[in-house]
Design a protein around this nucleic acid. Structure first.
Lengths: 235, 235
DNA sequence: GCAAACTGGTCTACTAAGTGTACCAGTCCG
DNA sequence: CGGACTGGTACACTTAGTAGACCAGTTTGC
């Protein structure tokens, strides 16, 4: 029963944001005080996290100026800061698990989705369209879309399972090499899926979702398909 | 980002053990010092957890004698001590999620299970046979069997998802009313499943596992099929 | 170009959680 | 009946985290 200390959780969160691209390399992080507000945490706690992140080479701290992202690719990150067993996971594992959970959730969601959730999905699709040229934002909206869909199943157990593998999704940007233009196709998939759900069509919606998830495998850069650039070190 | 304090985790663990039947009602808990050793925690921490459990009505502390299980059925447990959204979960939700995850894992496991894991499963089946008349022990072995099976898939993402819903499994004893005799059938299922895996038969093993999980729904006491006896209270 | 706003760096006082050890007084069982 | 075991209590200590203040460089907007 080792304690999951607060500043370690912040470290993991920031690493995930860098890995997912939502904190871009060489850009400045939000100021310490802003991070405190976001995580609802004292400044000392954030500072402890940032100090560790600098030791790990994920960020560089410029006094009186800001904290700058160095990137996560070259860093050797202790296992504790990565999803469980990360070294042994590849993109197909993530897709396989997502398909298992999301397709099961979809079957229920098609029957019992609420008008409110349906509206939410539509709004998300619109926001994705607006974010077509901002990859990190697009990916985040994409994930949120899937999350809302799973919750719409009304099965809290499936939702818990989905949430548990959320970390892997965020890191999957590490494997993929999604290009401009592919977002458009992803968006179209979501629109088709949404339409099928609105019609209550289990078969079509299932097929669309399945193909959409399979497509993720195609984005993977072939040369390092099984070799993530983020390496875990023993400690 | 609220902190997950250590004594709360102990509270949850003990509640889960009571709910699953592994700590039987009216029986004595392990001594405080024994719990300390098991959880690798100081005595003050265990005592804090026990004090809360007594306030919740889950146990009764008899000074100089021991801590006795009162049961969890009549208790009103704060949400924080139950699996997420527990009030809205019924047995079919748990089975649905388990099927999604375990069947996906099985497909992989059939192809790539290691001799070591295969041996482990055989040992577990034997131990289940030995525990045929000790329901709590039997259920624990049952779960371990499924856990090993999922891990044998080699997909850490699926394993993470399975682990995340472990809490629900443990509480599913709350819903079920498994009787003597039904263990024998469950054991037979596991044996058949094992045989199919050894033959590398995806179809048969999948069908056996699917039916086995569906059978859980039949154990559910019909009169309170959707109404768990463990109630959550707002706080 | 300069002043205000903002940045990370430092310090202090405080609380809560958890460790580890020790000793007490009842209970239980061989 | 005595020793082992039980929960109850106290104490000194460490660590994590909170909350607030102030400093000295940077950045930025007027």
């Amino acid at each position: 029963m080792d304690r999951d200390v607060l500043h370690n959780r912040i470290i993991r969160e920031i690493i995930a944001r860098v890995a997912s691209g939502s904190y871009a390399v060489h850009r400045r992080l939000p100021a310490e005080r802003a991070l405190c507000a976001e995580f609802d945490v004292a400044r000392g706690t954030v500072r402890k996290a940032l100090a560790t992140l600098e030791r790990l080479g994920v960020v560089r701290i410029k006094p009186n100026s800001g904290v700058y992202v160095q990137g996560v690719a070259s860093a050797r990150l202790p296992r504790a800061f990565l999803p469980p067993d990360f070294a042994r996971v590849d993109l197909t594992d993530i897709v396989e698990a997502r398909k298992a959970i999301e397709l099961a959730a979809l079957r229920r969601a098609v029957e019992r989705i609420s008008p409110r959730d349906l509206r939410r999905l539509r709004v998300l699709a619109d926001r994705m369209e607006a974010a077509l040229h901002d990859l990190p934002a697009f990916l985040e909206l994409d994930l949120t879309f899937h999350q809302v869909l799973v919750r719409a199943s009304g099965n809290a157990v499936l939702a818990t399972a989905f949430e548990a593998i959320y970390e892997y999704h965020r890191f999957s940007a590490v494997y993929t090499s999604q290009q401009e233009g592919e977002e458009a196709e992803a968006l179209a998939c979501h629109r088709r899926l949404l339409a099928a759900i609105e019609k209550g069509d289990v078969r079509i919606s299932g097929r669309v979702l399945g193909r959409h998830l399979d497509a993720i495998n195609r984005y993977s850069a072939p040369r390092r398909a099984r070799a993530p650039t983020v390496r875990a070190v023993p400690s």
